[in-house]
Design a binder for these strands. Structure first.
Lengths: 388, 388
DNA sequence: TCTAATTGTTAGTAGAGTTTACTAACTGAC
DNA sequence: GTCAGTTAGTAAACTCTACTAACAATTAGA
C-alpha cells in the first residue's frame, strides 16, 4: 500500500486542452482586455470610471488595473483635476508612450516598407528596402532583414509585428500563394517570429487595410474595403469580424467576371475580370489612350466612369447580400476621387433596392499611403491587447 | 453612526451590467453548453469521454453533468456494454425524448405552418392554418393562435419557439417590414413570448433555412443558402456565424440587378432584378410560355438554364468575395434539379478563378418542404442549449 | 465645522475548476 | 481463484476570480 505513494500515478489528465472549454482564467484575460480596450478608445479615466463602464466592482477593477500596471500595459497619470466632492480620482491610461508595434507593408510596387507605430496608429519611424525583380527566398530574406531593422528603431517595448502581404494567407500566417513574389506556402509568420522573437501576425494587404479603416475610419461593422493597386483586392468585415473564407481567400475579387458583355482578356485566361477594368496599370493604360484621343478630358472621364461602374456591378450583389453599410476605396487618390467614386456610388444605388436614407455610403479611405502599415499594427493591438 | 446602517448606503454598484464583462458564472454557462453540444452532436458518452473531449477534468465534468441532470437537460442511459478493462462507464446523453421545440414557418404560400420537433430536428406533430388574403393584425392573431395550438401538442418539456418569417427581422425579433403580410415593425418575438410564456426567436425564413442546412446538411462554415419561393431570399453563414448586416437585411438578394443587359420590369420598379428570373411565379410563367411553343422541352430547358445562369451571375461576386465553400439551393425540386442547378454550377465556375479541386460545391437542400421549420427549431436549440 | 460624496483599499466570502487521493469495478494472466 | 493493471467516478483541499462589507482618505458645500 505504501508503494502507491511513491509512484506518480496521478491520472494523467488534460493532454491537450483542445476542447476550448472556458476556465476562470480565460474570463480574467477577457476582462483585462476589456480594461485595455476601454482605456484605448475612451482615453484616460479613473478606476471608478472603469468600474461604472464595465459593470465590474471597483475592487475587481482595482485588481485588474494593478495587474496591468505590473505588466506595463497601463500607467497612472496622477490626480484628475475635476472639481467634485470626494476623494480625487487617479487617472489611469493605456501606456501610450511605453508600447510600440512594428507594421510591415509588402504590397507596394517594388519596395518593402516597415514602420514603428505607437498604440494610436501614428507612424514614428519608417524603414524601406527597394526590390528589383527579386523573387522567392530572396524576398523572404529581405523581409526578415527589414523586420530586424525596424525592430532596432523602436524606442519602447514592442508588442509584436504585423504584416500585410500580397497573396493568400491562411490562419496560421502561411502565405499559400503570392504570384508577385513567386511564393508558395511560405511560413512567413513563423519565420518572422523566430527571427525577431516577437509575436507576429500576417494577413493579406487588403485585409490589413480593412482592419485599419474599421478601427480608425468610419467603423461600420459591416463593410468592404477595396484596395486598388497593381491588382484589385478587398477586405471584408462582416458583423464586426473579418471574413476569412472557406479557403482563406475571402476578398479575392480581382478575377471575378463582371457583367454579361465580354471585356478584355485577362492574364488569368478569362475575359471580363474586374482587374482588367480596375487595376492601376489597366486604368493608366486606358487613360494614356484617352489622352491621345481628340477629346482627352471627356475620354478620360469615360474611362474612369466605366471603371467605377464595373466595380459597382461586381460589388452590388455583395453589398446587397451582406447588407453592408460602407464601401471604402483605397488607392491613388488622383485616380479614384471624382468621376470614378461618383460612378461607384451611383451605379451601386441603381442596382440595389432604393431606400431612403441610402443604406450604403461610399467613400475613399483616409491615408491610403500608410493604410496597410496601420492595419498591420492594428492586428497586433487586437491580438496582444485585445484593443479595438 | 447608527443611522447609516438603516440606509442601504452600499455603494450602489452594477446598475446595468452593460459592460459585457465576463464573470466566472458566464464561463460555467459556456461549459454547460459545451457539454450539451458535445452530447447532441457526438451522441451518448461517458463522463470520462466528455472530460477527454472537452479538456476539463473528470471532476469538473461530473459536476457539470450532475447540474444538467437536475435541470433535465441530460439523462443517464445505464452502463456502456463496451468490453474493456476498468470500471464500466455510465453513458450520459442529452435528453432527446424529454425535450421538445416548436418551429414555425410563416413563409409558405397562403398557409401558416407550425410543428413540434425533437432535439434532432425530427418533426413529431404538425399544425397548420390556411390564410385567405388576410393581412396585418389578422395574420398576427392567426400566428399567435397557431403557436398556442402547437404548444398544446407537445408531449415533453418545451425549450422554446422558433419562427421563420418572410420580411426583414431585426436582432430583437421585430419584423421591420414584411410586404406580404403588410407588416411594419411588428414585435413578433415579444408577442409570442408573452402569449406562450416560452423563450422565442424570430428570423427571416431564408436565414432559418440556412441555419437548418448548416446544422443538418453539409455544414460548411462559409456558405449561402438561396431560398426560391414566391420571391428569392438567402441566408449567409460567414465564418460559422449568420451574417445579419448593417440594417438586419443581409440575404435580401431578390432585388439586386443581375447582369448588364436589361431584363424584365420588376414590381419594385427596376429592371433585371433577380426575382424576375428566379422566383417560382416567374419561372412558372416562363415555363408555361415555353410549353406553348413549338419545341416545348427545349424551350423549358432554356428557361431553366437561363434562370440558373442569372442566379450564378449574381452569386459569383458574393461567392468570390466571401470565398464561400458551398452554395445551397432550396425550393421546388422539380424546378431546381437538373438544368437549373447544372447551369448555376457551370456559370459559377466560369466566373470564378478556376481552381482544382473546385473551391465551391453547389447542391440542393435536403427536405426543402420542412427546412424552415427545422431551422427555426435549430435557432431555439442554439439559444437555449448552446447546441450546434 | 460638520455633512455628504467619492475614490480606492483591505478583509472576508462564494463559486468554478484543479490537483490529489481515494473507492468501485472490470479484464486478463497466472 | 487470485492478483496486477486499468478505467470510471467521487470527495476533500487548494487556487483563482469576482463579490460584499467596511473603512480611510479627501474634497465640496451648507
Amino acid at each position: 500500500m505504501e508503494a502507491l505513494r511513491d509512484r506518480p500515478h496521478t491520472d494523467r489528465q488534460r493532454p491537450d486542452r483542445t476542447g476550448a472549454a472556458t476556465l476562470p482564467s480565460d474570463g480574467r484575460a477577457h476582462n483585462l482586455s476589456l480594461v485595455r480596450q476601454t482605456l484605448h478608445s475612451a482615453g484616460a479615466m479613473s478606476r471608478a470610471d472603469l468600474s461604472r463602464t464595465l459593470g465590474l466592482t471597483r475592487v475587481t477593477v482595482s485588481d485588474l488595473v494593478s495587474d496591468l500596471l505590473e505588466r506595463g500595459h497601463v500607467v497612472e497619470l496622477g490626480h484628475s483635476d475635476e472639481v467634485r466632492p470626494g476623494k480625487p480620482a487617479i487617472l489611469v491610461d493605456i501606456n501610450r508612450r511605453g508600447l510600440q508595434v512594428i507594421g510591415m507593408d509588402l504590397a507596394e510596387n517594388s519596395v518593402l516598407r516597415a514602420a514603428v507605430l505607437d498604440l494610436d496608429g501614428n507612424i514614428l519611424e519608417r524603414v524601406e528596402r527597394s526590390l528589383s525583380e527579386e523573387t522567392g527566398p530572396n524576398v523572404v530574406h529581405q523581409v526578415l532583414e527589414l523586420a530586424s531593422e525596424a525592430v532596432g528603431r523602436a524606442t519602447a517595448t514592442l508588442l509584436g509585428i504585423g504584416v500585410g502581404t500580397p497573396g493568400i494567407v491562411n490562419a496560421d500566417g502561411v502565405v499559400t500563394t503570392a504570384p508577385n513574389f513567386e511564393w508558395k506556402d511560405v511560413a512567413l509568420r513563423d519565420l518572422l517570429q523566430e527571427r525577431a522573437g516577437l509575436p507576429t501576425l500576417v494577413s493579406n494587404d487588403a485585409d490589413a487595410a480593412a482592419h485599419a479603416d474599421h478601427t480608425f475610419g468610419g467603423g461600420s461593422d459591416d463593410m468592404v474595403l477595396v484596395k486598388i493597386g497593381r491588382g484589385v483586392g478587398s477586405g471584408l468585415i462582416v458583423g464586426g469580424r473579418r471574413a476569412r473564407g472557406a479557403h482563406s481567400a475571402a476578398g479575392e475579387i480581382g478575377h471575378v467576371t463582371v457583367g454579361t458583355d465580354g471585356g478584355s482578356l485577362c492574364k488569368c485566361g478569362k475575359t471580363g475580370c474586374l482587374e482588367t477594368w480596375m487595376s492601376v496599370p489597366s486604368l493608366e493604360r486606358a487613360l494614356a489612350e484617352a489622352a491621345a484621343s481628340s477629346k482627352p478630358d471627356a475620354a478620360a472621364d469615360v474611362v474612369l466612369r466605366e471603371a467605377g461602374e464595373r466595380l459597382a456591378i461586381a460589388l452590388a450583389p455583395v453589398v446587397g447580400a451582406l447588407d453592408l453599410g460602407e464601401v471604402v476605396l483605397s488607392g491613388p487618390r488622383e485616380l479614384l476621387e471624382g468621376p470614378l467614386l461618383n460612378a461607384v456610388q451611383q451605379t451601386l444605388l441603381e442596382r440595389l433596392l432604393h431606400q431612403d436614407p441610402s443604406p450604403v455610403s461610399v467613400r475613399l479611405a483616409a491615408d491610403a499611403q500608410d493604410i496597410v502599415l496601420r492595419g498591420a499594427a492594428v492586428m497586433v493591438l487586437w491580438n496582444q491587447l485585445g484593443v479595438a
